[in-house]
Design a protein around this nucleic acid. Structure first.
Lengths: 141, 141
DNA sequence: GAGTTCTCTTGACTAGTTCAAGAAAACGCG
DNA sequence: CGCGTTTTCTTGAACTAGTCAAGAGAACTC
């Protein structure tokens, strides 16, 4: 019996066709939070050797559009993906090694969503990136 | 008499050599907030025809390192530069057309810098990107 | 004004991502 | 179950933003 999430069901509920590459990508993103595209490709190929990089790019886009994964891309970094969606969490990024960790914002629900001056923009999301040093990198400085 | 900022002085105070390309880039960034690199190159060449793109890349990096300009790069966008530095302001980005506007965060000074769980990271900056629709794009939807 | 050092020009190159055409697979329906 | 439609995957090329490297040229120091 499978113990992890039911990826097939997740795809069906999102009205996406169930294919091997999609199942593989979805599993990889769940098991390797914040992985970049290349890592996803490598990990997918460990279980399913002949997947083209293009397929992974397409799948990641489809999953992102469907809301099954979230794409994050801190300045200066390549695109990364995570499976934790639907909540309002943010990220700390290490300036030196690029390591990423999740954080929940301290300032209540939907943090900072109240911009003081919105210039007529209709705002639907506030994304926060905390910059600093990870434990290892701050140690060795 | 010049009415704008004294770019030459700014460069000298930052211990940077004063060159025509640097003066030109600094002026462009001041006059076109949130311009991307290509726009900066175009604008610079309007006043100084034979500047290489490499020079502009180098100058932008030098100015950024010196703290005279700030580099911003919302997910999915190319690098953009602005001259408003030293304060704690953030940005609203239009999901459709990519337009950017400045905002001051409503939640007091150094907003959101108090992450609830920092995982041992030493945090020195919190960057907030508000996502939504600009007035024009929200109109036409 | 000479020497040193930094900056700019030139031109090649890379990484990450996207585009396009056709083959193959998934799903809906009889 | 098997057929047709539609979507997705494969293959391979192309593109963009940005970087690297070597040498010529300009800025600053004394």
């Amino acid at each position: 019996m499978p113990s992890g999430p039911d990826y097939e069901l997740m795809l069906r509920e999102a009205d996406l066709r169930v294919t091997r590459p999609r199942l593989a990508v979805l599993e990889v993103v769940h098991e390797h939070p914040h992985a970049d595209t290349e890592s996803v490709i490598d990990a997918v190929r460990r279980g399913l050797a002949d997947v083209s990089h293009q397929a992974v790019y397409d799948v990641l886009r489809a999953l992102t559009t469907a809301g099954l994964v979230r794409r994050i891309q801190p300045a200066g970094s390549v695109a990364r993906y995570e499976a934790r969606v639907g909540d309002n969490h943010h990220h700390v990024v290490c300036r030196v090694c690029g390591a990423i960790a999740d954080v929940d914002c301290a300032v209540g629900h939907r943090p900072c969503l109240t911009a003081s001056e919105h210039h007529g923009f209709v705002i639907d999301e506030a994304e926060v990136v905390y910059w600093g040093l990870c434990p290892e990198c701050s140690e060795s400085s």
